[in-house]
Amino acid sequence: MRVEYINPFVEASFNVLREVLQSDVKRGELYLKSTSMPVMGVAAIVGLAGDVEGRVLFDMDKPTALKVASAMNGEELPTMDDLVKATITELANMITAQAVTKLHELGFRFDLTPPAIFTGDNMEVTDQDVEALIVPMEVPQGRIEINVAIRERS
């Protein structure tokens, strides 16, 4: 993944999470991964197109998703209902959009697809031959992994 793309995603994740959760956010060590990986339980995905092709996946477990959604809505949400899903989708959208805006300022053209959300147990995501950058984020509600895979169109 091009070096220029890394910081916008890291910064956007950090800023948006801190803003919507009104709390401390800690960033873990970035790393690359290319094998299939388990999804923790709730995954929101946003596709990228334009000069590049790729996707951003936001991955967290169910309790984290519920807590994050509760914090964002300012009320206790005990079950995985439509409001929770819509909230997590919106979070994914906000982070990706902010990153893409930053990239736009640097002169890279990206388009977004509408986010989609997946929930369930024992899920696994496999995308062949795609190397993903993992940005782990620790928030008081739990751990959110942002999984960015972008490559240039050749």
């Binding site: 993944m1 091009r2 070096v3 220029e4 890394i6 690359l32 290319s34 062949q128 031959d129 795609v130 190397e131 950058l133 490559r151 240039e152 050749s154």
Partner: peptide
């Protein structure tokens, strides 16, 4: 030049 954070052990999409 495209500088990429990339592990060559993973797939290398190159022309």
């Amino acid at each position: 030049i495209f500088f990429e954070f990339h592990d060559v052990q993973n797939a290398n999409p190159l022309p």
